[in-house]
């Protein structure tokens, strides 16, 4: 890890949006992890591409690989799906609302109990 030379936290009180600030901190951690997984994906993708073309790969080759515009586009498309999976809970909520799927869960319990 690079040693810290620059200031890392912006001056100014950070806003927390949830009643419990730990929820915001979890959001930050989850997205941090999501970013690192995305970095790993890109690295694996690079490796595979190099293996395909060369059959042999070095760390230097991976490090210095410059993706083409086409590859950048493909990766952006992959990340869209990936983000969709992680943020599934948000998409699901929007989808449910759009479908009018708003009944309280207890209604289903009562329905099957009376069925």
């Amino acid at each position: 890890m690079t040693s810290r030379k620059l200031q890392r936290k912006a001056h100014g009180q950070r806003p927390y949006f949830f009643d419990d600030p730990n929820v915001d901190k979890l959001v930050s951690m989850i997205m941090g992890l999501a970013g690192e997984v995305s970095v790993m994906h890109d690295r694996a993708d690079t490796l595979e591409r190099l293996l395909q073309t060369k059959g042999l790969v070095t760390q230097k080759e991976i490090r210095e690989f410059q993706p083409s515009i086409e590859i950048m586009d493909e990766r952006a498309a992959w990340r869209k799906t990936y983000l969709s999976e992680i943020l599934r809970i948000i998409e699901g909520e929007l989808e449910g609302t759009a479908r009018g799927d708003l009944d309280p869960y207890e209604k289903a319990v009562k329905t099957v109990e009376a069925d």
Partner: peptide, 29 residues
Amino acid sequence: TDHDEFARQEFVRSYKEYLVHNVHQGNEK
């Protein structure tokens, strides 16, 4: 940028695009 630094930046761009196109609209709804 080296390989991973660039990938990290590209993730943030995609993340922001995702918020704009897929999450933001939910606020108005």
